[in-house]
């Protein structure tokens, strides 16, 4: 059975090395400061007792006032898992440090999070849209996507910038 490290556990492990990194911890996850994220991740990956060399999943959540980037970590040698979260305070222009330098597996997942949620990952080598085409208006997984400032029902045009593309009667 995979051991799930609680957020407290994680915070406890991080305490001696990076005392001010952890902001919040619950039984499920630990939340760390964005500017300390890289150090925390490098520590989690390299510490022989934690050994989180496998980044299971990386995704973002729109929490209306801010964004959260969620990291599900896995240690193959120790068979344990943990969850890490990073808040992105600015809702209009969320930013988070990229962890591609720590886990290459974050590459495509950060691109996906950028494409669908608009979170800019600082330091990502190739941050482009991946599923949607360049020029797609907005980031559709945001909760405010439908009343996007660019116009009503943005995204319901067939192509970006198409005149009169607004669907009739659905405004």
């Amino acid at each position: 059975m995979t051991t799930v490290l609680s957020g407290f556990d994680l915070a406890h492990r991080l305490q001696p090395k990076l005392p001010d990194a952890v902001v919040d911890a619950t039984p499920d996850w630990a939340e760390v400061k964005p500017n300390r994220l890289l150090e925390v991740c490098t520590f989690l990956r390299d510490d022989p007792e934690l050994d989180f060399r496998f980044l299971s999943s990386l995704t973002g959540v729109d929490l209306l006032d801010h964004f959260e980037v969620v990291y599900h970590l896995l240690s193959i040698s120790r068979n344990q898992a943990a969850t890490l979260k990073v808040p992105c305070e600015d809702h209009d222009n969320p930013e988070a440090p990229s962890v591609v330098s720590v886990w290459r597996g974050a590459h495509l997942q950060e691109r996906e999070a950028f494409d669908l949620l608009g979170i800019r990952f600082q330091g990502h080598p190739d941050l482009r849209r991946i599923f949607l085409w360049e020029g797609f208006a907005g980031h559709p997984l945001r909760k405010d996507w439908l009343n996007f400032p660019g116009g009503e029902m943005a995204g319901l045009e067939r192509y970006p910038g198409e005149p009169g593309g607004k669907l009739e009667g659905r405004g």
């Binding site: 060399r53 980044l55 193959i76 886990w103 290459r104 597996g105 974050a106 590459h107 997942q109």
Partner: peptide
């Protein structure tokens, strides 16, 4: 590389990691 790239399934096992 396979672990660092978050590969899983037969990709990871093909690289010799019993997971």
């Amino acid at each position: 590389v396979a672990i660092n790239c978050s590969l899983s399934g037969p990709m990871l096992r093909g690289s010799g990691v019993a997971w």
